[in-house]
Design a protein around this nucleic acid. Structure first.
Length: 557
DNA sequence: AGAGGTGTTGAGATC
DNA sequence: AGATCTCAACACCTC
């Protein structure tokens, strides 16, 4: 009784299966303030691309709308959480803070600072692990404080707990306590517009800007002296007008859309039961997988709900594929990589990262730029990078193709550089999973068969012989005959002219020759491995670096 | 202790 | 068409 609680949304942008939120509501509080803090460290174009920012924006609008139906609202404040939250504690006599725990180094450091301020302000803090199916600490506790080194070992660990049945998801709360901010005018806690945060809104160029955020209608007006006004004073000064969002995204953000998408896919019983990730096409014009990753990343849907629905569907089907290739296996990859990222220091770097091979990557900004901008001269690679920029989502195997191409396959650039680009452009960019996969593809960790190399020409042909995917994303090449569309430089000049796209003029020449360079790169990788072995032998231990165990708490940005 | 099995998703040849 | 094999070449885990 008499608790005045802030529930701090960060990830976990949902009402269902949200134990921290339920905790906030469970103690008969006088007031519960659902707060999201727009941290300028994240919310700027250099770190978060416009497509993902819009996804976040839509997720927040959806959350606000759901809260509104339950007699509450989402309060959005801007600033560094370590500064903003203490101000709110003070101004609103907060006694309790709840949030979902997070495993990323930036978040861990931030949360420690917030906890310190909370303690100083006499605010009780309660945190819950609900971003993954189980608390990473639980896995570590059962595994001598270490993350399992392989996926299979992780699956074993997972299955050793309650027979591999994670706890069922919790229901969404029905109602919120009434609170004095309830009557606050709509405009006081609007999300800032894209432009406010320095983004160029592509929709503005299209001239279409339709506002679609439910919580983002613009009644101007301010009011009075309610506590709510104070709460939002900052936002109000910015006189933000309604957030204007462009035409609907291909993958709109939010819990509502995430649940809709989840249910839609789970209704395809046979498809779910026979799902095998390697059998899905990277270059299908419509996604060949669920595209639930962005909803998991932001916590619009709960992994435990996803798991429960999978189990229901599997039992309905009476058969199922298994990890690692099944849909359940995909959730376990996420669980595994999140745990590994939590337990490994410097997980986003090569140097100082105990699980990462040390490799003498080149540093060629021109190569990196060409790759990022889809100008490598390899249509399959350029098409994928273009889809990434425009839609913010590409198929897993498409990620493999371009990551291999940038690193060990062709350009021999550091996986860290590629990971940064993905981290900015992907709507589902997840710090742990992204870095893990880049290490995987560059043969820096987890996977080491560097002689298995994706061909930027042959790989795509297997599932799209006609090159329709290339025609869509590299429209300059759309008139090329299928025979040449993966290797347009092989087309005779007369054909190039007929197709209206001369290579070297209208479309770039190849920046490298895959056939020769990928073999040379294999030699370099072998040399790097051998050098690493020698290093290990010299220092007298077989695997001197494999000693990580404790969470990478001290990792510096 | 060292050999053999395994590893989410390669390419290319051969049957 | 699809399965199976090899290709120079891996590291890691298990027994």
């Amino acid at each position: 009784m008499n608790a005045r609680t802030i529930h701090w949304f960060r990830k976990g942008l949902r009402l269902h299966d949200n134990p921290a939120l339920l905790d906030a509501l469970s103690c008969d509080p006088e007031a519960v303030f659902p707060v999201f803090v727009l941290d300028p460290w994240f919310c700027k174009p250099a770190n978060v691309g416009v497509v993902r920012y819009k996804f976040l924006h839509e997720s927040l609008a959806d959350l606000d709308s759901s809260l509104k139906e339950r007699g509450s609202r989402l309060l959005v404040v801007q600033g560094n959480p370590t500064e903003v939250l203490p101000t709110l504690f003070d101004a609103h006599r907060i006694t309790r803070l709840t949030y979902e725990s997070d495993t990323e180094p930036y978040s861990i450091e931030r949360d420690e600072a917030v906890q310190k301020s909370a303690k100083a302000a006499g605010v009780e803090v309660a945190t819950f692990a609900s971003h993954t199916m189980r608390d990473p600490e639980q896995y570590l506790g059962l595994n001598k404080g270490k993350a399992p080194g392989t996926y299979q070992a992780f699956v074993k660990l997972f299955e050793s707990i309650d027979g591999g049945h994670p706890p069922p998801p919790l229901d969404a709360p029905e109602t919120f306590p009434s609170w004095d901010c309830k009557t606050a005018p709509d405009d006081v806690h609007l999300l800032p517009t894209l432009a406010d945060l320095g983004y160029d809104d592509p929709a503005a160029a299209e001239g279409g800007a339709s506002s679609q955020g439910s919580g983002a209608s613009s009644k101007s007006k301010s009011s009075s002296s309610s506590a709510a006004s104070d709460f939002f004073a900052k936002g109000k000064d910015k006189k933000s007008k309604a957030a204007e969002l462009p035409a609907p995204m291909k993958f709109p953000g939010g819990e509502t859309e995430g649940l809709r998408r989840l249910n839609e896919h789970m209704a395809r019983t046979a498809w779910v039961a026979t799902f095998e990730k390697p059998q899905t096409a990277p270059n299908a014009l419509q996604p060949s997988t669920t595209v639930l990753s962005p909803y998991l990343k932001f916590g619009c849907i709960s992994p435990r709900l996803f798991w429960q629905k999978l189990e229901e569907t599997y039992s309905k089907a009476g058969r199922k594929t298994s990890p690692p290739v099944s849909l359940s296996g995909q959730l376990l990859w996420r669980e595994f990589f999140t745990l590994t990222g939590y337990a490994t220091p410097n997980f986003d770097k090569m140097v100082g990262n105990p699980i990462c091979k040390q490799i003498d990557w080149d540093e060629n900004p021109e190569f990196l730029k060409a790759w990022e901008n889809g100008q490598t001269g390899y249509p399959f690679i350029d098409a994928i990078m273009t889809q990434l920029r425009v839609e913010g989502w590409i198929h897993h195997l498409a990620r493999h193709s371009v990551a291999c191409f940038l690193t060990r396959g062709d350009l021999y650039q550091s996986w860290e550089a590629g990971a940064k680009v993905f981290d900015r452009l992907l709507i589902d960019a997840d710090w742990s999973i992204n870095n893990a996969n880049w290490m995987w593809l560059s043969c820096s960790s987890f996977f080491y068969q560097y002689f298995r190399c994706y061909s930027p020409v042959a790989f795509g042909k297997k599932t799209d012989a006609n090159g329709d995917y290339i025609r869509k994303w590299c429209p300059k090449l759309k008139n090329y005959p299928a025979k040449f569309i993966y290797e347009p430089w092989k087309a005779p000049t007369s054909v190039q002219k007929e197709c209206g796209c001369v290579i070297g003029v209208d479309y770039p020449n190849r920046i490298v020759d895959h056939d020769t360079i990928h073999k040379a790169n294999m030699g370099r990788l072998k040399a790097a491995y051998d050098a690493g072995k020698e290093e290990a032998a010299k220092s007298g231990s077989k695997r001197p670096e494999q000693t990580s165990s404790s969470p990478a708490k001290k990792a510096k940005k």
